[in-house]
Design a protein around this nucleic acid. Structure first.
Lengths: 336, 336
DNA sequence: CTGGTCTGTCGAATCGTTTCGATACACATC
DNA sequence: GATGTGTATCGAAACGATTCGACAGACCAG
């Protein structure tokens, strides 16, 4: 069942059917009604391959996400899907494995599928401005850090201020009298990853309060409970008199909290714990975990909005920085 | 840059380029090498819209998932993505909102995009055999229950035995002396949802051990911590002398555990808690939660395998039922 | 030398759309 | 009656791939 069949059955020309379906050009009401009736009756759905081929562009959006099983991303992905869908566009979600070049992967998809836009989510990108420009379609970087210096006019982004957010959490702990605060995050050996940015905020807070930075208090760990657990165990074994832990994600914080509790220590009695992200599970942990919460769903929403603005012809790129929020639930307390 | 350009630059015919790219037909080694060099040099990627149009079928797979933000699905989705990707096929992930007809949505995508296969994940389907047959492409139902009786030869599926799994968990609690065991799950007013199947297993275990089924011990609640929390609160307020809680998902169990702990009761001292699914967070909860674990990643893997077998021409549908595993971690204990 | 087979290649038709230029008719204007 | 201006429609040429039938040359057999 193709447009030709519909045309024949409706007794009109092919182009008339096309104009009806696309609401383009003029068609008399009578003809329109007749065509639509036939379309509905036969459950006709236009073939998007043919359409995209002819138009040399599709309405498909791709979401390239690093860490698709990260619980913080789960709700963001859902929101992206919802918003894109709402605008009548199909969405392709592609998980980007560690070590693959996100831009190259997107590039391939763009050429292959004539994508009309891309959202990149999560990770640290090591690409030059030139590489971004070569994409050739609108795109948004959501919760992504870039290693190379890239002209802000060359891309759009949605993020929070990681340095400031980590500073906030650390200052909060310091204000409650903590001096030996450890920090758990993932930092590969390079600058400007999410982890290193948060480390920067952590250091800054220490410095401003005259506390010397001690590398022994910092543990490298992936964004998952099992790694947080192991890292916290290592730290506790060092016997450094830690009274507070700040984790760069709630998943880490949950693992770390488990390590603390299963060592027979209490939270916040012996050790205060603060996480990052604001996932639902952290709230229902016992004790409920304090965290620096990112407005993930809104961030996803705005990402889609920016993308569609760009697709609609908007030429100036936007950079939206959301405010993170320190959520106090009782997993930290004052010490003297 | 299209196939014509590549042909011209390579000094060969269009069809020769096509045969090189598809490894079809005979091409001399010299010609093949020359064409491939040109392809690489110009970063040429064939346009899949044109290809799919001509072939009247694409290699795209769709994943229709109900509850995309469910943490149990997160790893499954990742695995599906990985496996499909590994086979060189693009994946479209579509979240199915409550109340939309999954099959109709898939049908539309299939016609529109000439999909070559679909995986349906999660939810309860109210479709007739006829509707499944109309899909016209291979598909697999993963962790899905069907309301209507459907001939098993008409579809493939991957699942666990929900009745048996719930029976296992309930029997475990009973064997430790519990009599007042409550059950938390989502059951709309119909048979054969995941929730009602697990309820069946719960009832069966009670019955076999001569414990009368008390509807007051069953609470309806969505698969998320906040709902589990509220449901458990309601239960505790009834003062029914509950000593154990069995939740139909770990997310519910975590919420319920929070309710128990924040009421000043202890787990497993006062109340034993058993969840369902086997998500990582449940293990890192404190106390670590006992659960009936489903091998989600394997289930996803097998789903993709079955799907590709069907696409490859396999004509008999398969139904793989995985064994769930009772994981004891210490959130339940003996009572007398 | 003729005819047959094999190898490597090519051109053209085709997939199902969109869209541009053409056309046909009705009606008004001069 | 010739001309102009809408309005509603149509046909045909694309879009970029695949694939089938055709064909040229090499080689061998008779």
């Amino acid at each position: 069942m193709n447009i030709k069949d519909i045309a024949k059955i409706s007794g009109v020309g092919i182009s008339t059917v096309s104009r009806v379906l696309n609401n383009s050009g003029v068609v008399s009401d009578a003809t329109r009604a007749r065509v639509l009736a036939v379309v509905k009756q036969h459950n006709y759905v236009p073939n998007s391959n043919a359409r995209n081929l002819k138009k040399t562009q599709s309405n498909t959006i791709a979401l390239m996400v690093k860490g698709i099983s990260n619980p913080f991303f789960a709700n963001m992905i859902k929101e992206v899907e919802r918003q894109v869908h709402l605008r009548g566009c199909p969405l392709m979600i592609q998980h980007v494995e560690d070590g693959v070049d996100e831009i190259a992967a997107a590039m391939q998809l763009i050429k292959e599928k004539n994508l009309c836009g891309v959202i990149f989510m999560g990770g640290t990108y090591d690409h030059s401005e030139e590489e971004f420009r070569q994409l050739g379609v609108p795109f948004v970087l959501t919760t992504i850090t870039t290693l190379k210096e890239v002209d802000p006019s060359a891309y759009s982004s949605v993020s929070i201020d990681d340095v400031k957010s980590a500073y906030k959490a650390t200052s909060y702990l310091i204000s409650m009298g903590h001096r030996n605060i450890c920090f758990l995050a993932r930092f590969p050996f390079r600058e400007n990853t999410i982890g290193s940015r948060r480390l920067l905020g952590y250091k800054k807070a220490l410095e401003e309060h005259g506390i010397e930075y001690d590398p022994a208090l910092v543990e490298d760990c992936e964004y998952a409970p099992s790694f947080g657990f192991a890292a916290a165990k290592r730290l506790l074994n060092k016997n450094l008199g830690v009274t507070a832990m700040f984790a760069a994600s709630d998943a880490i914080a949950i693992g770390a909290a488990k390590a603390v509790l299963s060592s027979g220590l209490s939270i916040p009695g012996d050790i205060s714990v603060v996480g990052f992200d604001g996932i639902e599970m952290a709230e229902y942990y016992h004790p409920s975990l304090d965290t620096v919460s990112q407005p993930g769903v809104e961030m996803a929403h705005v990402s889609v909005e920016i993308l569609f603005d760009l697709i609609a012809g908007e030429t100036t790129n936007r950079h939206v920085v959301f405010e993170s929020m320190l959520v106090k639930r009782g997993s930290s307390r004052k010490v003297n």
